[in-house]
Design a protein around this nucleic acid. Structure first.
Length: 740
RNA sequence: GACCGGUUAGCUCAGCUGGUAGAGCGCAGCAUUGACAUUGCUGAGGUCACAAGUUCAAGUCUUGUACCGGUCACCA
């Protein structure tokens, strides 16, 4: 080893090993305080009047662990944040976690049942909540620690939890205002009831699962009707047909017939309604408004009676006669047996495929029920207050639906990729009133009080004898406030004034409806502002064959394993390159390994460059050759292109260009050809090239920093003092213009 | 059924406002002990799903067809 090489920091004498550096670097960043824009202003790396750039982190479940979906979200957002911070913007990225009410409560209930064989009513509300809190608090550190492992430059001083004090305040404010404006109402409507979890579930949380069941044809007076659910049919006393169906033109609306039915003779009434499709079966159906949303609507239209047949646990009620008290599953074959004896069974199709509604949050089969619940009315007109939403003015008559549409239509919110804008409109046009009350305990309790048929909506008890509604709010109600509540709303804090509307909301396209749409609804209504100017929707991370990662398939790639093996930088880059917004992306361990090689390549580029700069005297200015100038122009062009791609959210292109430049331009061409100059006799030419290489190295580090923050920062820390324009790379200036 | 994507090299995909095909991985050959255990160079491989249309010119625009995928709705 020569004299010169001993000047090189010892750290470079081994291949780059991410595990040796990442934790210490993250700690340094945290200690520096630069994740907090206020500190950046204080220390002079940002100015108080700089343009703000803000992102609010989609909060992961407090009891969850980091998966590749999170990892890709964190990588994308951190790139945007680091890049904009280096550009000198007042950059804020707010962290938080979500209670995931339903999922968390059922998880804890499960644990308790396993250990103590006790159900929720035996534990009691207060005790259960206490245990859930303990559980949530314990697991919180896991997800936060894992988030840090990815290198996320989140401002932890602004950490928020969906159920904490400040968020509670925002939720109460929102509920009460919506109630006072008549946008929240209580009503008995058809809801999705989960008999397992004993709660309602919103339309969006339902997952339809295909299943084969027998389809029965029954004689219903002169008609033949079909059903998969004979157990709901006891109370059917309306028979519906299309008004234009020629086959039934002799029957008229409102006509009554005496017929023989399961439990003896009944009176049935003819209803003519367009909901009956003449093409389906015989074109005639009976309805069960209590246990079907569609039937409920028909009953609403004609003011029909409705009767409950099945209770909340799935047991038949007295209307079922001899079957009362039995569970629907057990009763079905017995009911069929009886009907067969009565000669009511016309035919049975054993191979009928249909989709049944299940609770996607780990519950059971949905049983529609009519229940008294709280709803948000999305079609009610109200007068818009103060508005910054493009195309909507104070005093306009709007509905929540029109607000949601206009916010996007007029460019207040841009959705990337833009094809999702059409998906968004489509969803809004099919949107029904949103049921927001849940019969679970973990969540924000509804601020409504009952006494002798009276209802009052307020936070504190109105006094003696008033009972608070035991229900809690749908978790998406509070999530809908997230951009606002994390920035201090309903108080007009400095944070809210500075950072709201946020610049970007970045999340998976799978929660466009759950969350993105609801934030737009809440924010436009409550503040007259859009919640974010841009919605960037990323795709799902799949395995190398394009399959969804799942435990049962055993194809999960754990980001923490990958970080340990290949480093966070490699993991990040593997999730960015090739990941066009909105497209699913295949990921393999090989791909991550490839970017570990790249981190090492950069390491060696740095070592080579530093070795060859050790004897340079930069106080002397050397004349650049045309080739030197060409190299700098190439560098400049690359930096500009990468920046432009990030600005356009084309991170996959930006990352690829940066990668390609550093490896195949800087390393393969520039460094290779420089060897001759550096070892040559022409000292002037040598110094000129050294100056150029210094520029190439520092700019490349900056260029790559948003994508691979750790290795670039490690190298930066080893640079000589006069090569750096900042103590830390994370707050160094993005090389927008190279003055030469 | 409605809507939205996709179909380009063996694999995964890029190709912006139309100007005779690109990357990574893989494969084959050569070189290299080096800034690099994780390297470099060279090469093979494509009638861009199919058909018609617009155009001087079509992966690129239009229409239709086929297949694959997704989302939503519905089946009483």
């Amino acid at each position: 080893m020569s004299e010169q090489k001993s000047d090189i920091p010892e750290v470079f004498l081994k291949p780059y090993n991410a595990a040796d550096h990442e934790d210490t670097i993250y700690q340094k960043w945290e200690e520096s305080g630069y994740f907090n824009p206020d500190v950046c202003i204080e220390k002079g790396v940002t100015t108080p009047d700089a343009e703000p750039f803000s992102i609010v982190l989609p909060p992961p479940n407090v009891t969850g662990t980091l998966h590749m979906g999170h990892a890709s979200m964190l990588a994308i957002e951190d790139i945007l944040v680091r890049y904009n911070r280096m550009r000198g913007k007042r950059t804020l990225w707010v962290p938080g976690t979500d209670s995931a009410a339903l999922a968390t409560q059922s998880k804890v209930e499960g644990i308790i049942y396993k250990q103590e064989k006790k159900r929720r009513d035996e534990i009691g509300r207060e005790e259960l909540l206490k245990r859930i809190d303990v559980f949530a608090e314990e697991s919180k550190d896991t997800i936060i620690g894992q988030t840090k492992k990815m290198g996320s430059s989140l401002d932890w001083s602004r950490y928020a939890f969906t159920l904490d004090e400040k968020r509670y305040k925002a939720v109460m404010e929102a509920f009460i205002r919506m109630y006072n404006d008549g946008l929240i109402y209580r009503g008995a409507r058809s809801v999705n009831w989960d008999p397992n979890m004993q709660t309602t579930v919103s339309d969006d949380e339902i997952e339809y699962v295909e299943q084969k069941d027998p389809f029965y044809y029954f004689q219903y007076g002169p008609f033949v009707i079909g059903t998969v659910r004979p157990e709901t049919k006891f109370g059917d006393k309306y028979v519906v047909m299309h008004p234009d169906d020629e086959r039934y033109k002799d029957y008229h609306h409102g006509q009554t017939l005496e017929i023989e039915w399961i439990n003896g003779p009944i009176t049935t009434t003819i209803i003519k309604d367009e909901a009956a499709d003449p093409e389906v079966g015989t074109g005639v159906m009976t309805i069960t408004p209590w246990h079907s949303a569609v039937d409920f609507e028909i009953a609403e239209r004609h003011g029909l009676e409705r009767e409950q047949v099945i209770d909340e646990r799935g047991l038949l009620l007295p209307i079922a006669g001899e079957f009362a008290g039995q569970h629907i599953k057990k009763a079905r074959p017995l009911i069929i047996e009886k009907m067969r004896e009565q000669g009511l069974v016309v035919d049975i199709d054993e191979n009928y495929m249909h989709k049944i509604a299940t609770n996607s949050r780990g519950g059971g089969t949905i049983e529609p029920q009519i229940k008294e619940q709280w709803f948000i009315n999305v079609n009610k007109e109200f007068t818009m207050g103060q508005s910054e939403v493009p195309g909507v003015h104070a005093g306009d008559q709007v509905t929540l639906k029109t607000l949601m549409i206009k916010a996007v239509e007029n460019g207040g919110v841009s959705i990337f990729p833009d094809r999702f804008e059409r998906v968004y409109y489509n969803w809004i046009n099919n949107l029904h009133d949103w049921c927001i009350s849940r019969q679970i305990w973990y969540g924000h309790r509804i601020p409504a009080w009952f006494k002798a048929g009276e209802v009052k909506v307020q936070i504190d008890s109105p006094g003696e004898g008033w009972q608070q509604d035991p229900d809690t709010l749908d978790t998406w109600f509070s999530s809908g406030l997230w951009t606002m509540s994390t920035l201090g709303w309903p108080d007009m804090t400095e944070d809210f004034k500075t950072y709201h509307p946020t610049t970007v909301l970045e999340t998976g396209y799978d929660i466009l409806f759950f969350w993105v749409a609801r934030m737009i609804l809440m924010s436009t209504y409550l503040t007259g502002q859009v919640p974010f100017k841009n919605a960037y929707l990323h795709g799902l991370v799949r395995d190398e064959k394009g399959k969804k990662m799942s435990k049962s398939l055993g194809n999960i790639i754990d980001p923490l394993d990958m970080i340990e093996k290949f480093g966070a930088d490699a993991t990040r880059l593997s999730l960015i390159v090739g990941a066009a917004p909105g497209n699913d992306m295949p990921l393999s361990e090989d791909k991550i390994r490839a970017y570990k090689k790249f981190a090492n390549k950069l390491w060696n580029i740095s070592r080579f460059t530093l070795t060859n700069l050790a004897d340079a005297d930069f106080s002397v200015t050397a004349e650049l050759s045309p080739r030197d100038q060409e190299i700098l122009d190439g560098l400049h062009a690359t930096v500009a292109e990468v920046g432009a791609d990030i600005d356009k959210f084309n991170l996959y292109l930006a990352a690829e260009k940066a990668y390609h430049y550093v490896w195949h331009e800087l390393a393969d061409k520039i460094l290779e050809e420089s060897k001759e100059v550096l070892n040559g006799a022409d000292n002037e030419a040598k110094l000129a090239r050294q100056t150029v290489l210094k520029e190439c190295l520092t700019s490349s580090l900056k260029l790559l920093h948003p994508f691979m923050p750790f290795v670039t920062e490690v190298v930066w820390q080893e640079l000589l003092e006069d090569m750096r324009d900042a103590e830390m790379l994370m707050v160094a200036k993005w090389p927008e213009k190279i003055d030469r």
